[in-house]
Write a protein that binds this DNA or RNA. Structure first.
Length: 491
RNA sequence: GUCCCCAUCGUCUAGAGGCCUAGGACAUUGCCUUUUCAAGGCAGUAACCGGGGUUCGAAUCCCCGUGGGGACGCCA
């Protein structure tokens, strides 16, 4: 085992390295979050690096979306592109791989010079033929390049005469096994012949993921790498690159995958999987964060609902679960409701207004609706429907309610209700006390009590036989609108 | 196919050899509360993938199976 022993403690520097190819995925959000939490816990630095070497798929628009999603979640980075201007800040820039090409080239040269890499002129067809043959013969489909032992001069000559070359890492002559201690999985050993000579630089000079990743993590002094399990086997290549370059590797921690209901890797094809969708559906960012944190990590005290600050306090890189976690939207919804309910009236309305300024437009003192909303809310998107009961123009009577009206002694109750509301002394809005007194009055006047009394009033107010506690909402209706509703019953 | 990783209620998980008659949360069922619906409270159903070891003792350690996932790209 040749891994250089690096005993001096390094300052904690972690990174999240998304490739900007769409909205931030919940899996990516979790990776970002864990790194962020870990950095904060250790008072370290959280770096955002953009892996945009795949020019075909990476777009500036996507980068903008990813940055926005991270910001929405409140995951802040210390180095990387600014969330607004997208200009790099930090001492280890640039932070976009597409702007670090010279750095990769330089490192590739080093590897070339020291004989740990070589120019390879194999064409796609030759590669394909090799692969097919290997598969047919039941061998590992590794590249066997006839150019592996060419001298640089030989290669240069061919390049000068127009030869297209990739730079491949030479795996020949490496040790048999590579072992490292994964922060989450413990000791892991890969046989070095698990991989063939892999590409470092494409023929157009663009570097390939494993190469930039290793180079950047080393150059940016990254101390700990928490990333998804799908990268586990990439670690071997990266270890080889570290070794070839004489760097000591960071600590690695491979996170379990986030899975869908069918225990498949969460894919964009099935349901909501991007943070952006949850934002649009009216989730509180803190709730989503809380939920995602628990997808593969557990609070030492078993807490389920906790703030980011609390999470930072205990997130030290332990308690991470190596097994895959199914994303349960139902539990997320529950958690969101918990968070929304715990908000102060002012905060809830502020959040709702930020989410959709139209809902409370022209409504005076919208906080008075908060108590009622909190009782029924799961996501912010539920608000318009919950508010709909206050829309007097839309007042209508359900068939069940109509049947009840027709089959019970409701008429005198409604008449008494209308007459009570018509009394000028009731004011513009009813208080709970006033409402209770009126109920009492109606009971005495009409002799109707119990269900027919209460349900009649409920129908006169809501047009339905079910719904929110009348005492909770009665003060939210103007007496005028109550009157209009009662009259609309047509009794 | 080869290599690597993983495996506790339906789901998220606790559990680092005896505290496990396996705990909590979501979901689900019932009851209470509320003259409605929710919310809330209480109670219930529900799991250590299988087989071998090691040990006085195994959910926990080891091996073998099985199942799932990942990687084997000029994707990341």
């Amino acid at each position: 085992m040749s891994k250089p022993v690096d005993s001096q403690p390094r300052p904690v520097r972690v990174r999240f390295a998304p490739s900007p190819t769409g909205y931030l995925h919940v899996g990516g959000a979790r990776t970002a979050l864990y790194n962020f939490l870990f950095a904060r816990h250790h008072k370290g630095t959280f770096v955002l690096r953009i892996e945009d070497t795949d020019q075909a798929r990476s777009t500036e628009e996507s980068l903008k979306m990813v940055l926005e999603d991270l910001r929405w979640l409140g995951i802040q980075w210390d180095e990387g592109p600014d969330s607004q201007t997208r200009q790099d800040h930090g001492p280890f820039g640039p932070y976009r791989q597409s702007q670090r090409l010279e750095i990769y080239k330089k490192h590739a040269q080093t590897l070339l010079r020291t004989g740990r890499a070589y120019y390879c002129f194999l064409t796609d067809e030759e590669l394909e033929a090799q692969r097919a043959k290997a598969t047919a013969e039941n061998r590992q489909p590794h590249v066997v390049s006839p150019y592996a032992d060419w001298t640089l001069a030989q290669a240069q000559e061919k390049i000068d005469s127009g030869g297209k070359a990739v730079v491949r890492f030479k795996t020949k002559g490496l040790e048999k096994d590579y072992t490292f201690r994964d922060l989450i999985r413990g000791e892991i050993t890969f046989p070095s012949d698990m991989v063939g000579d892999f590409v470092l630089l494409r023929s157009d000079g663009m570097p390939v993921y494993n190469f930039c990743c290793a180079v950047d993590d080393a150059e940016m002094r990254i101390s700990h790498v928490f990333r998804a399990e799908e990268h586990l086997s990439n670690t071997l290549r990266q270890l080889m690159i570290y070794e070839g370059l004489g760097y000591s590797p960071p600590e690695f921690g491979h996170l379990s995958l986030v899975l869908d209901e069918d225990r498949q890797k969460l894919s964009k094809r099935k349901g909501a999987t991007s943070c952006h969708e949850f934002m649009r559906e009216g989730y509180h960012p803190e709730a989503l964060k809380n939920f995602i944190t628990l997808l593969g990590w557990s609070h030492p005290e078993g807490k389920e609902i906790f703030t980011e600050t609390e999470a930072v306090q205990c997130f030290d890189g332990t308690r991470l679960n190596p097994a895959g976690a199914v994303f349960d939207g139902t539990k997320l919804k529950w958690m969101n409701a918990q968070w929304l309910r715990s908000l102060s009236d002012e905060d809830l309305i502020r959040l709702a207004n930020k989410f959709n300024p139209g809902w409370f437009k022209g409504v005076q003192n919208p906080e008075r609706f908060a108590a009622y909303l909190k009782n029924y809310l799961e996501t912010l998107n539920d608000i318009p429907e919950l508010l709909e009961i206050f829309n007097t123009e839309g007042f209508s009577v359900t068939p069940e309610a109509r049947t009840f009206l027709d089959t019970h002694p409701c008429k005198p109750v409604i008449a008494a209700w209308i007459s009570a509301l018509s009394d000028p002394s009731v004011g513009d809005f009813l208080t709970v006390e006033k409402f209770t007194a009126i109920q009492e009055l109606i009971k005495n006047q009409t002799g109707v009590k119990g269900k027919p009394l209460f349900l009649s009033l409920r129908i006169a107010i809501l047009g339905k036989t079910e719904g929110a506690d009348l005492k909770m909402i009665i003060g939210l209706f103007s007496v005028q609108s109550l009157l209009r509703r009662a009259q609309a019953l047509g009794l």
